[in-house]
């Protein structure tokens, strides 16, 4: 049973991690908590959902190819949307107090979520089963192919992000802007373009999380980003907000905590545990597990 809960926890952790990366990257660069991240996750899932009919031809070749096309298309579209969100809601407020951007991000969250509701309606949509959810039974352990694909895609994307930030010129530019906008600008780094790139990556990763959730659970709703967004934010804070490996560690710890706590505490308390952790971390160790920067009060 414990082994099964660890599998459940890793699946949850992988989803939280992809979303938490979006929060933490934007925070690292702008000290801004981009609450629209949860809505971007929803948009990503719906873009993929709406593109399913157009890509059914690929399914006959291999469902993995169809999934790859859906992932790329939805990540691209959502990434562009995230850049637009920055352009409309945050860039004009760059020199204003941070609080203004925070309120602006809450507004974008509500706006995007309601736009999704207007376009597709309030009813839950059934995401097609691209990858089988029939379990492989290994002794007492049940693992579905969809879960394996979910974790594999998440790990690939995270590894790609790590390579990008550590090994490429643009990645170095991102890290430089995170240290100081002004110094980076003096070194000839186009700061606004680097910020746009950060939003693009954050939005794309959020979209990937949304699609993987649709793939694994088979259902998407216009408000799916609310709770998931708050949990991923908790994961980012837990790992140390602004710190990329920290977001992944925080997410996996949170996922395992949620599923393993079910063995001793009734599951209706799961959300209370998650947000209890958030409060404890903010009160006792605002730097988080791996954090380098002290989380600011906003």
């Amino acid at each position: 049973m414990i082994a099964q809960e660890i599998v459940n926890g890793l699946v949850l952790g992988a989803i939280y991690a992809l979303m938490a990366l979006g929060y933490t990257m934007v925070y690292g660069i702008l000290r801004l908590i981009n609450f629209a991240q949860g809505s971007l996750y929803t948009v990503g899932a719906y873009v993929a959902f709406l593109l399913v009919p157009a890509t059914t031809g690929l399914e006959r070749a291999t469902p993995i190819l169809q999934l790859a096309v859906l992932l790329l298309a939805a990540m691209l579209a959502t990434g562009v949307l995230a850049v637009l969100v920055d352009l409309i809601a945050y860039r004009p407020l760059r020199r204003a107090p941070l609080f203004a951007s925070l309120v602006s991000s809450l507004a974008m969250m509500v706006l995007l979520e309601n736009l999704v509701q207007v376009v597709v309606g309030a009813q839950p949509e059934t995401f097609p089963t691209l990858i089988s959810t029939t379990p492989w039974l290994i002794g007492p352990l049940a693992v579905t192919p969809a879960q394996v694909v979910l974790v594999a895609v998440a790990v690939l994307l995270m590894a790609g992000l790590q390579l990008f930030t550590q090994r490429t010129r643009l990645g170095r530019a991102m890290r430089a802007v995170a240290v100081s906008h002004d110094t980076a600008a003096m070194m000839g780094i186009p700061v606004n373009r680097v910020i746009a790139l950060t939003f693009f990556l954050g939005g794309a990763l959020g979209a990937a999380a949304g699609i993987l959730v649709g793939l694994n659970f088979g259902t998407i709703t216009f408000n799916m980003g609310d709770l998931a967004g708050l949990k991923a934010f908790t994961a980012a804070v837990l790992g140390g907000i602004g710190n990329i490996p920290g977001a992944v560690v925080g997410a996996v710890v949170l996922g395992l905590l949620e599923s393993l706590s079910a063995t001793v505490i009734p599951t209706q308390w799961t959300d209370a545990i998650t947000f209890g952790v958030l409060i404890l971390v903010l009160a006792l160790r605002p730097r988080g597990i791996l954090g380098e920067r002290v989380a600011e009060r906003v």
């Binding site: 049973m1 809960e5 459940n8 926890g9 599923s259 079910a262 599951t267 209706q268 959300d271």
Partner: peptide, 20 residues
Amino acid sequence: SEGVSANQTDFSSLLTQIKA
């Protein structure tokens, strides 16, 4: 006898308990 929270989408922890 247990409650699940509204808007919850992942029930696998609880179902693992039930399976046992």
